[in-house]
């Protein structure tokens, strides 16, 4: 029931946002900033770049929304913008990934209560493996399992067919399993 109310809230805010209400924008910023940041960060590995890109993405969202009126869902829209921004960024900058040691040194990781030590080591390793996948696979896995988006939404975001998305996810998972078992 709570989700019904909040999805209605979001719908109302979205309509207000389309008519130029900046309070509605603040509402969406608060709701989505962490997710977009996370999505971008996983892909680009640098906090600085992630911050800059996230800001860019929100600005683009605002500008596009005021121009185009026929967007249905804020969530798919913002992720689409994020998705495209990340791709553009790669095209311009070539892959420049930080070595994964960087994550190990980060204190935040160690202070994470939610995960056991085992899990943490696993997570880092897992991230490493995911990064070995090609970017198409990475993206669908991120969108599906980290951002918990639906197949429909992912299809809209990546501009691919729904079936295509399902196949991609399946293949990504298989490939990932392969990589993991190969390294063990």
């Amino acid at each position: 029931m709570n989700s019904l109310k909040s999805s209605l809230q979001e719908k109302i805010a979205f309509l207000k946002l389309k008519s130029g209400d900046s309070d509605a924008f603040a509402f969406f910023y608060d709701k989505y900033v962490a997710r977009i940041y996370r999505f971008v960060l996983i892909k680009v590995s640098s906090k600085q770049i992630a911050e800059d890109l996230t800001q860019e993405i929100f600005l683009k969202v605002w500008q596009h929304l005021v121009d185009k009126k026929d967007i249905k869902s804020f969530q798919s829209f913002i992720f689409r913008v994020a998705y495209n921004s990340v791709i553009d960024h790669y095209r311009q900058n070539d892959r420049q990934e930080l070595p994964l040691d960087y994550i190990n040194e980060n204190e935040d990781l160690v202070s994470d209560d939610a995960l056991t030590l085992d899990d943490k080591i696993d997570s880092t390793a897992l991230l490493e493996k995911i990064r070995e996948l090609k970017s198409e696979y990475q993206e669908v896995l991120l969108l599906r399992y980290i951002e918990s988006l639906s197949i429909d939404e992912i299809a809209e975001i990546t501009q691919k067919e729904k079936n295509n998305v399902r196949v991609l996810i399946h293949r990504a998972l298989s490939k990932l399993k392969e990589i993991i078992s190969n390294n063990k």
Binding site: V33, D108, S123, I146
Partner: peptide, 10 residues
Amino acid sequence: QLKNMAYFQP
């Protein structure tokens, strides 16, 4: 579970 990593919080 990756999403819970504190590292990814802004």
